[in-house]
C-alpha cells in the first residue's frame, strides 16, 4: 500500500499511463510548478473522460499513487461496471453533485480526502465543457478548498487536445499529440473574496492555453 492506493489501483494506474502515452505521446510542461512532493490540488479544464488520466500520466509514480480524481457520483457510482472502474481500478473521490438528493456534502468528502494526505485532480467547471468557449465559469468548489486547506498547493493544469482524442460519447481514442501545461500555483490571498479568487484562478488556467498563431508549440 502506497499513499492508500491498492495494488490494483497502482497497477491499473501504470497501465493507463503507458496506454495514454502510446496514444497521445503526452508530455508534461512544467511552467512554474515542477514536482516537489507537496500535497496538491491539480485543477484543470475538462472536456473528456480522458482528462484525469492524462494529468495523472504526467505525474511521478509516487505522486500518481497518492492522487485521486474528483468525479461526479451521479455518473460514476451508477451501474456495476462504472462503480468497479471508479472505486476499484482508479483512485477517485466521488462527490454528489445533485443538491436535492445528496446524502453527503461534497466539500466535506473532498476535505476528508485531503485530510488523508491525498492530492486531488479537480475540475472546477463542475462538468465537461461541451461549448465553444475555452473554459466555463468556475463553480465555488475551488475557493472552498483553498479556504479550508491553505497549505495545499493549487496547481493549474491546461489539458490540450484531449477533447479531440476522446470526445463525449466516443469509446475509441484517436491518436493525437497531447500536452499538459502545469502552471504556477495559485494562492488564496488574505481576505480575498470568492468571486475575485475564482476569476483569478480561471485566468491563471486560461493563460496556459497555447496561442494558436504563435510559435508557442
Amino acid at each position: 500500500m502506497r499513499g492508500g492506493a491498492s495494488l490494483l489501483q497502482i497497477v491499473s494506474g501504470s497501465v493507463l499511463a503507458v496506454f495514454a502515452r502510446a496514444v497521445t505521446g503526452v508530455r508534461p510542461i512544467w511552467a512554474g510548478s515542477a514536482p516537489n512532493g507537496r500535497q496538491r490540488i491539480y485543477f484543470a479544464n475538462h472536456a473528456s473522460h480522458g482528462d484525469f488520466i492524462l494529468v495523472s500520466t504526467c505525474l511521478t509514480p509516487v505522486e500518481r499513487s497518492r492522487t485521486a480524481a474528483v468525479a461526479g457520483a451521479d455518473y460514476w457510482d451508477s451501474g456495476r461496471v462504472r462503480r468497479f472502474i471508479s472505486r476499484r481500478l482508479l483512485r477517485t473521490v466521488l462527490v454528489e453533485r445533485n443538491w436535492v438528493e445528496r446524502t453527503a456534502d461534497p466539500m466535506q468528502v473532498m476535505i476528508d480526502a485531503l485530510g488523508t494526505g491525498q492530492s486531488l485532480i479537480f475540475f472546477p467547471e463542475g462538468t465537461r465543457n461541451m461549448t465553444e468557449e475555452p473554459l466555463l465559469r468556475f463553480r465555488s468548489g475551488l475557493y472552498n478548498l483553498a479556504a479550508a486547506r491553505p497549505d495545499v498547493e493549487l496547481v493549474p493544469c491546461w489539458i490540450e487536445n484531449m477533447s479531440r482524442v476522446l470526445p463525449k460519447g466516443a469509446l475509441l481514442p484517436i491518436p493525437l499529440l497531447c500536452r499538459v501545461v502545469f502552471g504556477e500555483p495559485v494562492r488564496l490571498d488574505e481576505g480575498e473574496d470568492r468571486k475575485t479568487f475564482l476569476d483569478r484562478a480561471r485566468q491563471a488556467l486560461l493563460a496556459l492555453a497555447p496561442q494558436r498563431d504563435g510559435d508557442s508549440r
Binding site: 487536445n161 470526445p167 484517436i174 491518436p175 493525437l176 499529440l177
Partner: peptide, 26 residues
C-alpha cells in the same frame, strides 16, 4: 508512420464526423 501520422493529424482540422475516417487511418 504511426508517429508521423499522429503528428500530422494533430495539426489538421478535424471534426466529430471525421472520427471513423481517422480511426480507420490509424
Amino acid at each position: 508512420s504511426f508517429a508521423a501520422l499522429r503528428e500530422y493529424v494533430t495539426l489538421t482540422n478535424t471534426r466529430h464526423a471525421d472520427r471513423w475516417t481517422l480511426l480507420g487511418m490509424f
